[in-house]
Design a protein around this nucleic acid. Sequence first.
DNA 1: CGCGGTTTGTGTATCGCGGACACAATAGAC
DNA 2: GTCTATTGTGTCCGCGATACACAAACCGCG
Lengths: 243, 243
Amino acid sequence: MDARQVLTEFFAGGDRAFIPNLSVDCSILGFHDGELKVLLLRWRGTDRWSLPGGFVRQDEPLDRAAARVLSERTGLERIYLQQFHAFGGVDRREDALAPVFESLGIHVPADHWMVRRVVSVGYLALVDFAQATPTPDVFSEECRWWDLHDHPPLLFDHDDIVTRAFDTVRHELQSAPVAASLLPERFTMPELHRLYETVLGRTLDRRNFQKWIRERGFVERLDERKTGRSHRAPYLYRFAEAQ
Amino acid sequence: MDARQVLTEFFAGGDRAFIPNLSVDCSILGFHDGELKVLLLRWRGTDRWSLPGGFVRQDEPLDRAAARVLSERTGLERIYLQQFHAFGGVDRREDALAPVFESLGIHVPADHWMVRRVVSVGYLALVDFAQATPTPDVFSEECRWWDLHDHPPLLFDHDDIVTRAFDTVRHELQSAPVAASLLPERFTMPELHRLYETVLGRTLDRRNFQKWIRERGFVERLDERKTGRSHRAPYLYRFAEAQ
DNA sequence: CGCGGTTTGTGTATCGCGGACACAATAGAC
DNA sequence: GTCTATTGTGTCCGCGATACACAAACCGCG
């Protein structure tokens, strides 16, 4: 079933299955090449980008709607996913969406809630970059990672959402072992160290950092080391189960 | 205009002015007699209580809707008001609301969004207890303060909302001078001390607390003292302007 | 096969903040 | 004037965070 057909059905009554004027938007973050990345969608017929989002079914809890978006865009389930803020400013969305529907040859009633006002609940997802498979949705024709601090300006109020998502990660990282979600199952201390430095935006003493993180019992050292590069082989770690 | 008339108009089309399936609920907290209080409404024709809430106008930002609820229930404007979470579970609300509409002799379509599912955005408001004038809304016939830790079980998911609001206050109190909002403009150090002990739920050394709070520059000591009781007169303080 | 370069693993001295604690000052009651 | 309850203030101590240096080891090269 192609996008045009899906959307035509949506506007022909399929929209009733969803809560009007409400959406969830996911800031899906990954860590790669020493940089935080965010997953963005390019909308059909445009060069404009936005966060992946979706509408909420009438009988669907908010959290599940967010989990659905995450799984559809990345193929991942059971991921760190946290709601962080509802964005409720008033914005007229017609301008942004008109080219999309035009390129699909779909007529949307000018007063349909989707092109007028949408209150969006922002979710933060932290994923293992290597495990995610970026996949566009019906509105978009491209889905890929961008550098969190170097991406095109986003549609709607999504720049605000990304900013706030980043604040949330920075905050969470200092109180809980959420870094687990951003790394592969097994990782080295230098990798974890670099992740923290990147997110917090400042240098952390290598030795103090190691002491700090190990004292908290977040990680568990394995007997194995990671070899292959021309210097001392670092130990491998994995995150400790909840305790 | 009485409640019956307002609600009749609402269900006769007035509901179109609002975003369906969405509400804001305010945890309005005050401090009195050494206890945290929360403002609750008793619904018409019942002995059930809930948080004050309201629907969001189509052209109204979320924050403004919350501010409107706050001002209508307390008479206060420009108050500390912070969104803290969106509650998006699925709950059927018919059971809770039926007695209300019955007592008013109003017929509500069984599939109307208001009696089915509502996603609620929770706001936390901190007010000066003495300045607030509790006022019921059209759904309720009583509005009054309850002890935050000793109130009747609430309608819908409002017990969850209150719990989370309390978590939010406790967290905020330690990082920002929000206690200002819970006290009169001028207050004494023992009063502020008791407020912190109450909210944090533990004793705080009087001397260390004073040192801590003054070092942060949250408060400003006035030359005046508060007299009238038979022991050493405490200084008056006020909160420092943003700096 | 051994040497060099680069990165990782670990331990110790120091500082600052938070917590424990004691005594002097004072307003009103009598 | 005395007494009592409460407030104002300063010092000591300990732990956790920060600053910092040296030994170990893997690969690559000659």
